[in-house]
Simulated scan of single mutants.
Amino acid sequence: MNTEKIKTLEKLLDSIEIVENARSIEGLSPEDRVQLEKASVSLRNVERSIIRIKTNELVEKLTHDAQALDKLADEINRSAEKLAGVAKAIEKASNIVKAFVKIAAKAIGAGLI
């Protein structure tokens, strides 16, 4: 599915480029300009939707990964005190991932991504 979204996005970007190039053609009628503008807006909306889906998938995956890191850190903490430093490093990495997820989720919510 991931590959399909990337291929779709690549083809969509090709279409956007074609429409944008067509918009610069001299002598277009006002109706043609309006149609090209509508096509451009529609294509860009689809582009944003695909990017939003990919971003949401990334947030979901990173959230899951952060939870797995937390679990691993807890297990290491319980297994031996000498590995506590390793557990702290993993906890720190997990916190960094969680912070990124929060930032990405806010950006999605604000429509920035």
Rank of each mutant, 00 (worst) to 15 (best):
E17V: 09
E47F: 04
I90H: 03
I18E: 12
E91W: 01
K7P: 00
A107N: 14
R44W: 04
A110M: 09
N95M: 06
I25F: 13
G111T: 08
K102N: 03
K88Q: 14
K82D: 13
N56C: 03
G111F: 05
T55A: 15
T8D: 01
I113P: 00
I25N: 12
L112S: 05
E20W: 01
S15W: 07
E91D: 14
A68G: 07
L36N: 06
I25R: 15
A93V: 02
K82Y: 13
R78I: 11
E91Y: 07
I18W: 04
A22Y: 02
K11D: 13
S15H: 15
L12H: 06
K71P: 06
L12C: 08
A66F: 07
N45F: 01
T63Q: 11
L72A: 13
Q35G: 06
D65N: 12
G109F: 04
L83T: 10
S40G: 14
Q67K: 14
I51Y: 00
A39V: 01
R78Q: 15
N21P: 00
R23N: 06
D14F: 05
K11N: 15
A110C: 04
N2G: 08
T63E: 14
A93I: 06
V34E: 15
E26N: 13
T55W: 01
K82E: 15
V101S: 01
N95R: 12
R48Q: 07
E26I: 09
N56G: 15
I113F: 07
G27F: 11
A39I: 00
E47S: 03
L112K: 14
I96C: 03
I6K: 06
K88S: 14
N56V: 03
N77D: 13
A84L: 04
K102R: 04
E4F: 13
N77C: 03
A105V: 02
A104I: 06
A84H: 10
D70I: 02
N56K: 10
A87R: 05
L69N: 05
R52Y: 02
N45Y: 02
N77L: 06
K88W: 10
L28Y: 10
V41T: 10
L28T: 12
T8F: 04
R52K: 07
V19L: 11
A99S: 15
N2E: 01
S49G: 13
I53H: 10
S40L: 07
T63F: 09
L36Q: 03
